[in-house]
């Protein structure tokens, strides 16, 4: 019942936040985000518990959940840190580079750079599993040609492994952030105030920084949030593929998925904990993005208030 209790705690916290917000109107925008976050995490807890418990009724071989809560935390803390590292590196590699490239294309105003848009669309279509296969093919080719082991070890959270996983994980989100960012920036670049600024003789970099990027900032943050969602979606796949010891890999192994390398005993409590932690990380990052969106767009903040 630990998970149901935690779900109820989440619901209570959400209720408390709503009550506090009603007493202090200046806290309403932040309260709304935090209450939604607490509600979402409690919902995820209860749904995950329900799904895993239902699965247990079909699999008699699964052991009962461990009695000591500390054992669960000890089991998930390491993978949680590893996954967090991977996600942060992927966000830097993927979302940031994608958004920066979109801004660069707008800033440079070069037709040759517009080819990048086509490339971005093409990369976006390639499924993550194919990118992962090609990455491993590349590792093997480099090894066969030079004798250098560039994979960073298999099944470890080494720097090399982290970079390979992050590269594979971030390619599609980068393409998404680039495409969407480019559309937003191009639309903004055609706006009346940009033409006026251009006619007044302002420097192009000033126009881009002050009159194009700044008004699109909230849209760009929303795009970044969507690309992070994509990243989390493919996280279990990439971790399983490279045997990266993160939450996705832990979730699958504790559900009884045999990696072919090591045999893991199914553990429903670890499965619930890892799924909930993954979803919580995503929810927190999305809440942060929402808060940033409100900060960048005063109209949205006003509406929320």
């Amino acid at each position: 019942m630990l998970w149901v209790n935690l779900g109820l705690v989440g619901l209570t916290v959400a209720g408390a936040i709503v009550l506090i917000s009603t007493r202090a109107p200046q806290l309403v925008p932040a309260g709304r985000i935090l209450a939604a976050l607490a509600l979402q995490i409690s919902g995820v807890l209860v749904v995950t518990w329900f799904l895993v418990s239902r699965g247990q009724t079909h699999a008699a071989s699964l052991p009962p959940p461990p009695a000591v809560e500390a054992a669960i935390w000890a089991g998930v803390s390491g993978p949680a840190l590893a996954s967090l590292e991977l996600v942060l590196v992927s966000v830097i590699l993927g979302t940031s580079i994608g958004t920066a490239a979109a801004a660069l294309v707008a800033w440079a105003r070069s037709t040759s750079l517009e080819l990048l848009i086509g490339v971005g669309s093409l990369v976006w279509i390639i499924p993550t599993f194919l990118i992962a296969i090609l990455a491993q093919d590349l590792q093997a080719t480099i090894y066969n040609l030079t004798g250098a082991r560039v994979s960073g070890g298999y099944g470890t959270a080494s720097l090399g492994q982290l970079l390979w996983c992050a590269a594979v994980l971030s390619i599609r989100p980068a393409a998404y952030a680039f495409r969407q960012g480019n559309v937003l920036i191009s639309d903004q670049a055609r706006a009346g105030h940009v033409r006026t600024a251009f006619a007044k003789g302002l420097l192009w970099r000033t126009i881009v920084g002050r009159h194009i990027i700044r008004p699109t900032a909230s849209g760009l943050v929303q795009t970044a949030a969507s690309s992070i969602r994509l990243m989390f979606g493919a996280l279990p796949l990439v971790e399983f593929f490279f045997a990266y010891p993160g939450l996705g890999q832990l979730l699958l192994s504790s559900l009884g998925v045999n990696s072919g390398i090591q045999i893991q005993t199914p553990n429903p409590s670890l499965a619930i904990a890892s799924a909930v932690l993954l979803a919580s990380m995503l929810a927190v990052l999305e809440a942060l993005a929402k808060a940033l969106t409100l900060r960048f767009d005063p109209r949205l903040a006003e509406a929320a208030a």
């Binding site: 509600l39 995820v44 699965g55 969602r229 979606g233 493919a234 979730l251 993954l278 995503l282």
Partner: peptide
């Protein structure tokens, strides 16, 4: 609300959990 909860899950993890709830394992 159901949409928000579904959106709270990474899609692959959710798909695996739903199949698991029907079959009990891979």
């Amino acid at each position: 609300s159901a949409g928000t909860w579904i959106a709270g899950f990474p899609y692959l993890a959710l798909a695996v959990l739903v199949i698991q709830s029907f079959t009990g394992g891979p």
